[in-house]
Design a binder for these strands. Structure first.
Lengths: 187, 187
DNA sequence: AGTATTTTTTACCGATTGGTGTAAAATGGG
DNA sequence: CCCATTTTACACCAATCGGTAAAAAATACT
């Protein structure tokens, strides 16, 4: 049945993901990818088809890794605690690498790509999760939770941005904590 | 004194700025720049030195254009009204292009460039302006305004991100208004 | 008008881009 | 052990990248 592969698919995806994460899609060349993954161009193409397909797969991998975080928003009972835990953990996990999803929406080469559509869909899904938790939190009142859901979900941009700017992590945590307390704490 | 230029420097900078804004630094090629500005490669290099220098100049131009907005934070008396007006206008002016400064901090080719350092400095300056206005607003109290200043200045990332995602502008305005009312309105 | 000076045009540079064709190397099943 | 099959390595592709040298075209000043 022929020679066996010299690499582990999942490891290659992981390495490619980190490369894309650090450098962006366009700025990560095939040379970069071969250097980082250790396997050569032809093997990359045999396994993944093209640079863009590899990126899509890497994005998928990224989302898979983020599942535990997203799961926080699905815990029963829905409510503000889920949101607080989610954003607190997001802020805590911030790094100077930023967020791959956030970074990808600005990539020209991806503007009309499947990846870009996927990222937008992911964000809308996040927004929807926030809405559901807010509705549960404020059930009974007739308040429109849409603006608050948007405000909260957009904080992933703030957090990613501060991370990219290398803002002190303690300060990031404090600022998010402040936001959450102002929005949710009984006053 | 020889032939006169048949372009206007300021117009070229303006056009280059828009190209960089839309596509990013790395993804905007010299071909793009010559096509958009109308003048050829050699003239571009005679006038601006290099692609990176042109980008720095374009970034400068962008900041100049943003001066009226920043001026809102310098109005006397300092206080929350300045911040409210600033963020309200920023949200109102959002476009799908996002913010050139925000977009630039993620560009690998600029990571160790003068442009990147400039952008970081700009953000810190913004944060400081927020702090001064908050100190004025809360003078007398011993509250540490740093986290709030960081939270507020980081909203430029949220706003830019929502713009990039093509979120309905009305919704963006509402979400920012909500944040401001929660932070500042007497309760 | 003549000419010195500047700008623009054109052709070109080596390096790198994403992607492929081909042949050698390696390893499975019989 | 042998051969079919797979994966690898290597050479190569046209296109494009940022940048430049040199000559041609245009114009302002005397």
């Amino acid at each position: 049945m022929g020679r066996s592969k010299n690499y582990v698919r999942e490891e290659v995806i992981e390495q490619a993901m980190h490369a894309f994460w650090l450098n962006g899609y366009a700025a990560t060349s095939l040379s970069d990818l071969t250097a980082i993954t250790g396997l050569n161009k032809k093997s990359l193409y045999n396994e993944f088809g093209s640079k863009e397909e590899l990126f899509n797969i890497a994005l998928d991998h990224y989302n898979q890794q983020r599942m535990p975080l997203l799961a926080l928003l699905n815990r029963q009972p829905l409510g503000s605690k889920n949101i607080i835990d989610f954003l607190t953990k997001l802020a805590h996990d911030t790094s100077t690498k930023g967020c791959l999803l956030v970074l990808s929406i600005s990539e020209r080469d991806l503007l009309e790509s499947a990846a870009n559509r996927q990222v937008k869909k992911d964000f809308q899904g996040l927004q929807k999760l926030f809405e559901l938790n807010l509705k549960a939190e404020f059930k009974g009142s007739r308040r429109d939770v849409t603006p608050m859901a948007l405000l909260l979900s957009a904080q992933i941009f703030s957090i990613a941005g501060m991370g990219k700017l290398n803002v002190n992590k303690d300060q990031i945590n404090k600022s998010i904590k402040l936001l959450l307390s102002q929005l949710f704490e009984a006053r």
